[in-house]
Amino acid sequence: MSESNIINPENLVYDKTSVMTDRVLHYCPGCGHGTAHRMLAEAIDDLGIQGDTIGVAPVGCSVLAYYYFDVDMQQAAHGRAPAVATGIKRTMPEKYVFTYQGDGDLAAIGTAETIHACNRGENILIVFINNGIYGMTGGQMAPTTLEGMKSSTSPRGRDIQSMGNPLKITELVAQLPGTYYVTRHSVQKPANARKAKRALKKALEYQKENKGTCLVEIVANCPSGWKMTPAQSNQWMEENMFPFYPLGDIKVPSE
């Protein structure tokens, strides 16, 4: 078979899902947000719930997520996405509701909303993108910044004595009785991205059964904030982020 015959609609194996719009993403080259968006969009597409899904966008780089998901979206005040999602889910319990938040949004200013929404066991999906830095505002230190990690507000590296410990909020909310499924993934390699998609799909399925809060953390890179090329940032993430934020399920439903 010649190559021109291969490019043919009936041989199509992978194309951008229709749950994502055709708009060009504003993210920096190599940013994990784009892949994370698409994995969530593909999970929505696979379950056939595009018309019944409502997303809540945060403040941060992903504030413009409402341009990219072709589902109903609402943008929330900084850190308040789980509170807004609670309201949406309680008024429309038949809809699938997700929030998409970064670490500065979910683990810093939104800590109270996150913990209380998880503790109440709201039937929402929280997608947490953890890149250990405030990407949008210029790479400042976030609660999730690793010990010794350089950022624009910790130029000599995070010092535990004066700046405190990095916060593992995913492990924290896994302790709460309201959470049903808590897991951590990444999207920098094909296998990781496919696993992340399966986890997101599972979390949306649990929402249908009204099981409680599901939180899927995605450890991501921030090439611009970390001042590295995308390839270097992915390698740095594997070497430094994964030992502290190990991938895998943290709380799984007991069958």
């Binding site: 199509l12 194996v13 993210y27 080259p29 698409r38 920098q188």
Partner: peptide, 16 residues
Amino acid sequence: CAVVCPDAVITVYREK
């Protein structure tokens, strides 16, 4: 390649 592309620029075809 298409799965990890952050900007979804790659479309993949494979013969049956």
